[in-house]
Amino acid sequence: MRVNCTVNGRPREADDVWEGESLLYVLRERLGLPGSKNACEQGECGSCTVRLDGELVCACLVAAGQAEGREVVTVEGLAELAAQRAPDAGAAGDQGRDGAQTAGLSPVQRAFVDAGAVQCGFCTPGLLVAADDLLARVPDPSDADIREALSGNLCRCTGYEKILDAVRLAAARAGETV
């Protein structure tokens, strides 16, 4: 079957989609967007977290056909989304610890790099989409809020400590610019 949807603001079309395929497969294998990761394919790890019509979902549990006509935002579209939200913030790389490397990233992406929240990085795209969603809803989250919001995203490398740091850092930086 054919599936049409908007991904990161652009209309996309996938052909010859098998009816049992997930949105995750379509993104990764048909639309050239492998940023969303395939770690468990049963909604237990959050590595494939994307926004579907604005809601956080596991792309592995959305049938490709269910995405028909919907809007999807993946990790590849986070920077653009951040820029749309706050056209003045986010674009400049001056807040990062490493301007040369982190220009063009969304604030939460930059914070993950700066805080050392990335090791193998396989969980990172899903965590970024979830953390971005949290900070959009709750600009100054408590640690308990962060933990609850990220409780659907497994990380095997970091022990989560630097991930918490990264979300705190992104929130603090956003607070400074307001």
Binding site: G46, A149, G152
Partner: peptide
């Protein structure tokens, strides 16, 4: 139930 992602679906 599950996680925030699961509770959204």
């Amino acid at each position: 139930v599950g996680s925030p992602q699961i509770r959204n679906r």
